[in-house]
Simulated scan of single mutants.
Amino acid sequence: MLVVSSYATLGSFSWDQDNDKIKIYISTEDADQEKVDAVFKPVSVDLKLYDINGKNYQFSIPKLNKEISPDQCELVVKPTKVIATLVKASKGNWLDLHFKEDKGCKKVNLWPWRAFTVCSFSQILTKTKIRWLELWI
């Protein structure tokens, strides 16, 4: 592992998932296995790319949405992209890679017999539509 004092942040990436894994795709140039370092932890991922066109880059998610199994995670380095495969600790769909606090969420009584926890006005509208469908079915 190289020790470098400064990194440019890699903010551009794409990701995909299935029930068991998440794949993070980072486009790059001139990458090879010796120029990439990955640290997988139960709730974080940190990738460092060294000497890519004379610059060092870092991609980091300090707090993932849910836990991963670090020992099963993999890194594939190709000349034009880096693919980090995160293995989920528990199966299921993630709505986002980053953990988000439920700040501002409130319990809302839309009807006397039904309450929901909502974090935004759009969630209230969505839950209202679901409730109306339940009433009409």
Rank of each mutant, 00 (worst) to 15 (best):
G92M: 03
Q72A: 07
S122V: 10
C73L: 03
V87H: 11
K88I: 00
T85E: 14
S122Q: 15
S69F: 13
D71I: 12
K103N: 05
F121W: 15
L75W: 11
S120Q: 08
L86G: 07
I68W: 04
T117S: 13
V82S: 04
L97K: 04
I68C: 12
K100G: 01
V77S: 06
N109T: 09
S90K: 02
R114E: 13
K66W: 03
P112D: 03
V87I: 14
A89F: 13
S90G: 05
K88Y: 05
E74C: 01
K91C: 00
W113R: 10
L97Q: 09
C73G: 13
P79I: 10
K81R: 14
K78C: 09
P79H: 00
L75C: 08
F116W: 15
C105W: 01
H98C: 04
S69V: 15
K107M: 03
W113P: 01
F116R: 07
K81G: 06
K106R: 00
S120G: 08
F116H: 11
L97C: 02
N93W: 05
E101M: 09
I68N: 04
L75Y: 03
K81W: 12
A89Q: 15
V82T: 07
T80R: 15
I83G: 12
K103Q: 08
T117G: 08
K66V: 08
K107Q: 02
Q72R: 09
S122H: 14
P70L: 01
N93V: 15
A84M: 14
P70V: 09
V76I: 11
E74F: 12
K103A: 06
K107R: 07
R114A: 13
V118S: 00
K106N: 06
T117W: 08
L86Y: 11
K100D: 02
G92T: 05
D102P: 00
K81T: 05
K88L: 13
C105S: 12
A115P: 01
T85G: 12
E101A: 02
N93S: 01
V108P: 04
I83N: 08
W94G: 08
N109V: 06
W111C: 13
V76Y: 08
S90L: 08
G104M: 06
F121I: 14
P79S: 15
L110H: 03
T80S: 15
F99S: 07
F99I: 01
V108K: 12
F116K: 04
L95K: 02
D71T: 11
N109A: 14
K103L: 04
V77K: 02
W94S: 05
I83D: 07
K100A: 05
F116E: 06
Q123D: 15
D102Y: 00
S90T: 14
C119H: 00
T117N: 10
N109H: 01
